[in-house]
């Protein structure tokens, strides 16, 4: 079991009109390769901030982040860009596909940044879209497909460069329950193939696809809960997680 991602005393303080507003403090976290870690917490708990820091979208105010042996916190903007390009995928709640590109074009674009052989990128994109069950929609524009289908395109886009870690921020937050389930199935499937995933969510059902839940409160880790240690069925898992979350003050 290889540790892919490690943080030590990680903290982030925003400056709002020159007033320091702490968002995250003293976070120590380790993510093992192939793991699906879920970040939970109430609004303002710092889970999204932690996700930005881990994925190199935001710079920490203090502490260290080690990603696959590289210190993210010491990287300049270009190094971070190259890391995001080759090593990290990101899925947003608001999906954020480029509206004037087709679904296929949205997926291949990050691939073109990394891979000189564009035929290989195209083939990989078709394979990913097929695996998400939306290969037939490849030539449509985002506005011509459903929200769930758009989010699956976003996952395919995040996977095009075979990242070492996939980060997802409330990936089902803007979807109805059926579309949300399809997206969760997709996450489960790719995690089963060994993809490391770190996902922030406030939905108990979504959290239950993870290996463990990290609960944040007021910018600090309050506790961890290992879901897969439980041998219970899906409904019981949800109930047990909910009970743990309530116990943590959710």
């Amino acid at each position: 079991m290889t540790t892919l991602l490690t943080t030590r005393k990680l903290g982030k303080t925003y400056q709002v009109d020159a007033v320091p507003v702490p968002s995250l403090a003293g976070v120590d976290l380790a993510v093992v390769a192939g793991e699906l870690v879920v970040l939970m917490g109430s609004s303002g708990s710092g889970k999204s901030t932690l996700l930005y820091l881990l994925s190199g979208l935001e710079r920490p105010s203090e502490g260290e982040i080690d990603f696959d042996g590289q210190r993210i916190d010491r990287m300049d903007e270009t190094e971070l860009s190259l890391l995001r390009r080759a090593g990290i995928g990101f899925v947003f709640q608001a999906i954020n596909l480029i509206p004037h590109l087709t679904l296929f074009e949205n997926v291949v674009l990050p691939g073109y940044l990394l891979e000189p052989d564009r035929n290989r990128v195209d083939a990989r994109a078709r394979e990913l879209l097929d695996s998400m069950g939306i290969g037939r929609l490849a030539d449509r524009l985002p506005a011509q497909v459903s929200g769930g289908e758009q989010q699956r395109v976003a996952i395919a886009r995040a996977l095009i460069n075979s990242p070492r870690a996939l980060f997802a921020d409330e990936p089902t937050g803007a979807l109805n329950s059926a579309a949300g389930s399809a997206v969760l199935d997709a996450f489960r499937a790719i995690n089963a193939r060994g993809q490391t995933i770190v996902m922030a969510t406030h939905e108990v059902k979504s959290a239950c696809i993870g290996d463990r839940v990290v609960f944040l409160k007021d910018g600090r880790i309050e506790g961890e809960y290992r879901i897969r240690d439980s041998a219970a069925g899906p409904a019981e898992r949800e109930a047990m997680l909910l009970a743990w979350l309530v116990e943590q003050g959710w």
Binding site: E77, A86, I98
Partner: peptide
């Protein structure tokens, strides 16, 4: 989106 996808400055 492009920045997140890894485009350098």
């Amino acid at each position: 989106i492009l920045k997140t996808a890894g485009m350098t400055p």
